[in-house]
Design a protein around this nucleic acid. Structure first.
Lengths: 341, 341
DNA sequence: TTTAGCACTCGTTATGCGTGAGTGCTAATA
DNA sequence: TATTAGCACTCACGCATAACGAGTGCTAAA
């Protein structure tokens, strides 16, 4: 185990490295953090810490740099101190839908806010769980050959899809259909789906083909754990020295740009409610070995809401965690009708 | 005016520079393009062309590089000559129809397609003009305090917005409202709007406040020339040598990332239907002095569809223009909006 | 156990030099 | 007169070398 002083040295290295971005040497520590001890003493401690896997040297005559293991320890220590302040995010969802204009508006707002405050990249996502409940379904005749299929879930998520129909259906017919289906409001999507399938096979005979296709699309959206994701501006990445190298930037970018990659990433971290941190190789993506992801999520009503910040491994974890807390709070507290621009 | 040979030299420089990305010297031209003439002769012509503002030297002992003026001439010449190219890409283009599914689906697909085919960045946008006509409006009760406002325009654009209501309205009441408003289907938004305003003031009395707010939001979307924009992946930019420099990349990125900037850009080029090209400084954005934008747009039914490709000034204009032609043609050819397959 | 001192390592920056691609100019040539 | 060959000159680029400095490990003294 680590001695008290080793811990002190280690955390100082991490802290200083997060500040400066450059390998930190024994002299710096001796002058700035552990004024009582000489550089030589600290050198010895650092050599030990390196052996234990907490530190590494980029090259022979350089100072030390924290390993993922060191970050992990650092974060856990920080989180430990913070844990008192942490609290449930239960109310998050209610406020999301109530006070901002639809789920999408709220999440766009949140991701922008996180981005601005953290100076990294904020993300916000909502995942429909299998338990998502239907609030309302509707079919709206657009013209002779097109019907708009509308699905609203409890929690405020809205899906719509234009479906081509081989025959013209009157609005009355459609309304009748909708009325029947809506008797299932409040039930989970799985049940609704089965009912719809039967209905289509049984009573809609000749329309079955086009309906089935629409239903399949809908299934793709809903049956799986479909996630809607909002990513803040990536502009901040340009200011981070870690990504000045175009190669690294590119790697990270390719992940962030394609929604799928990011959703996978979030899913990996999604273990528990509350705040979680994944550092470097801890997420399996090799492109993200220099990155860290801080997430905070909470679920209820068949959907799970996740807020997060993505930045360099050398991230200001304290700040990010507190920002995350704040935005969460902001979302919960915000009194009425403000729609984030 | 340019002599025949000067033109030949100039276009060769442009062509070669587009290929190689490096300043082109007299010897190269003599060997590869104008085998009849010696390097010295070509050098003289190039000196003249430089004086005329068509070419420039990055530094004293370097070959020549085209100026914006040269690209302009090149593009105009190319636009004149092109017409008879017919090849490839069939399979991909055929997919367009299959993937179409509402305006958004089609444009997402189109921008991706343009990105893939051009190897630059494809964009696709639809702008609602003032003449946009209402196809259908609907109010759908979600729960006691929320109504989903649904607006469908001729042309297939769908807007929806969740509106908080201070009082519970029954679906029947809402349906009645919708029925009245829908008598205006087929009319321009301007008229519909006035009618809605009156209706709200006259018959909806106590709900006026919340309705007005929703209506205002809707106006923001529709009364102005609102543009919905889809941008393809930016990943290709990493392969372009012109943007290897992180500074330039950043500048371009900042424009591409924020939707507003891009919309402004499109608007600038939106002069006429047909294909238009803006090269370097021709668009006023200093960030885009090394870029070119090729646009092709067509309007009908109260909406204007724009497809475009954004890439380096040193762009393969021939290819991009032909790609753009094809994709656009495909989009216009089937104006029936999703013909069910 | 701690610290001062010293030799050593290695990345970074500056400097200098050779090379090659490309030019402009001039004089010879068709 | 228009074209071309020849030549001196320029300048970016790559490479080697050297100086510098931040940092280390090790040893011996306090």
């Amino acid at each position: 185990m680590l001695t008290e002083r080793q811990l002190e040295v280690l955390l100082s290295v991490v802290y200083e490295f997060i500040e400066s971005g450059e390998h930190v040497g024994s002299r710096t520590l001796s002058k700035r953090y552990l004024t009582g001890r000489s550089a030589a003493t600290i050198r010895n401690e650092m050599a030990d810490l390196e052996e234990m896997g907490y530190l590494m040297q980029p090259h022979t005559s350089a100072g030390r740099v924290p390993t993922t293991r060191a970050y992990r320890l650092f974060v856990d220590t920080v989180l430990q101190r913070r844990r008192a302040k942490e609290q449930g995010n239960r109310e998050l969802l209610d406020n999301l839908k109530a006070h901002r204009n639809g789920v999408e508006g709220a999440l766009t707002f949140a991701s922008d806010l996180l981005t601005q405050l953290s100076h990294y990249v904020g993300v916000a996502a909502v995942t429909q769980l299998k338990q998502a409940r239907l609030a309302k379904i509707d079919f709206i005749r657009v013209d002779t050959s097109n019907v708009l299929l509308l699905v609203i879930l409890e929690g405020g998520i809205v899906h719509h899809k234009l479906v081509g129909m081989p025959y013209d259906l009157s609005q009355d017919t459609l309304q009748d259909m909708a009325r029947r289906v809506n008797t299932l409001a409040g039930h989970e999507w799985g049940e609704v789906r089965v009912m719809l399938q039967n209905y289509i096979m049984g009573e809609l005979g000749r329309y079955a083909e086009s309906c089935r296709k629409a239903l399949d699309d809908l299934d793709k959206l809903m049956a799986g754990e479909h996630t809607t994701l909002f990513t803040g501006s990536l502009a901040n990445l340009f200011n981070i020295p870690d990504f000045q190298d175009i190669g690294r930037f590119r790697a990270l970018f390719s992940i962030l740009e394609q929604e799928g990659g990011l959703v996978d990433l979030l899913r990996k971290c999604d273990t528990t409610d509350g705040i979680g941190v994944m550092i470097g190789e801890e997420n399996d993506l090799p492109e993200m070995e220099n990155c860290a992801v801080v997430l905070s999520s909470s679920s209820s009503e068949g959907q799970k809401t996740t807020l997060g910040v993505i930045g360099p491994k050398r991230m200001n974890y304290e700040k990010v965690i507190s920002v995350l807390d704040k935005v969460l709070q902001e979302l919960i507290d915000s009194p009425g009708e403000n729609e984030g621009d």
